[in-house]
């Protein structure tokens, strides 16, 4: 008798709990506070005010979203959000925030735009006041604008332009190539070094970061300046050269200063 009661109670409890979940598995639910405007000939629809797009794989929130489709409403090819936009795709280790987020579902391109934008790609954190672009299928990324920053376990990079290529190894994304440019000097921080230059190039084949123009390497109390430099990330060693017009300068700070 007690078991029968328990089964009935469980069924009631289960039915109440599942009735609260509106979205079914495999379904994408879009909610808006101010409606949806469908343009059938132009093949897009506008989602207006407090938009939430929730699916099994990701969630997007924004003030306003434009969804482009191929054949019918279900067949979304790209999304363009505007105002207080967030993206969360836990399954792929991607999260982001910005004024605008563009997601091209076919080419797997994500672009985050606006001040204080960020895009986290697993352990790699990208920030910018301009734009952050990641092409997941081609495995490349690009950050443009003031205060652009790329951070992972080994490097902390600041520059006006940061681009690179990543590859996936055992489910983990690793940087293979990197180009950093900044007319007002870029900054690359490692565990015990700070590097400044106008341009830096990294290649994981050589494990070397090359520095070009107005090079400055700071290691502890030691400051070395020159026109060209490189840093070996495996050997943790560096070298600075100068062109014919200038000389390499080494400054050692007094620790008592």
């Amino acid at each position: 008798m007690n078991i029968a009661k328990l089964i009935i109670f469980s069924f009631i409890l289960l039915s109440f709990s599942t009735s609260g979940i509106s979205r079914e598995i495999g379904e994408t639910e879009i909610t808006t506070d101010d409606g949806i405007e469908v343009f059938q000939n132009e093949k897009y629809y506008l989602l207006k005010k407090n938009v939430t797009i929730a699916s099994d794989d990701f969630e997007i929130t924004s003030d306003r979203v434009k969804a482009n489709f191929e054949i019918d409403l279900y067949d979304i090819t790209s999304l363009e959000t505007k105002g207080n936009s967030t993206l969360n795709a836990i399954k792929y280790g991607i999260s982001g925030k910005g004024d605008e987020i563009w997601v091209d579902i076919i080419s797997e391109v994500i672009i985050v735009l606006g001040k204080d934008s960020f895009l986290n790609l697993q352990e790699t954190k990208m920030r910018s006041n301009g734009s952050i672009k990641v092409n997941n299928s081609l495995g490349n990324f690009e950050l443009k604008g003031a205060n652009s920053n790329l951070q992972n376990d080994e490097l902390d990079i600041y520059g006006e332009y940061i681009s690179g290529v990543f590859s996936e190894f055992e489910g983990k994304k690793e940087i293979k190539k990197l180009i950093v440019e900044d007319e007002n000097l870029l900054t690359i921080n490692t565990e015990n070094l700070e590097m400044n230059a106008k341009k830096a190039v990294y290649d994981d084949q050589t494990n070397i970061i090359e520095l070009f123009s107005k090079v400055k390497i700071v290691k502890g109390q030691e400051i070395i300046t020159g026109d060209y430099g490189y840093f070996d990330t495996i050997k943790n060693s560096y070298k600075v050269k100068s062109d014919n017009t200038s000389k390499v300068k080494v400054t050692i700070k007094n620790s008592n200063e």
């Binding site: 994408t28 409606g35 405007e37 469908v38 059938q40 019918d72």
Partner: peptide, 27 residues
């Protein structure tokens, strides 16, 4: 696709359908 809304407007010979108010779209 299913859409539930608080109202709608159909304009431009059916090209534009504007679902008004709180709207839920399920794909």
């Amino acid at each position: 696709t299913s859409i539930i809304s608080a109202g709608f407007d159909i304009t431009e010979n059916g090209n534009i359908i504007n679902f008004k108010g709180q709207t839920i779209l399920k794909i």
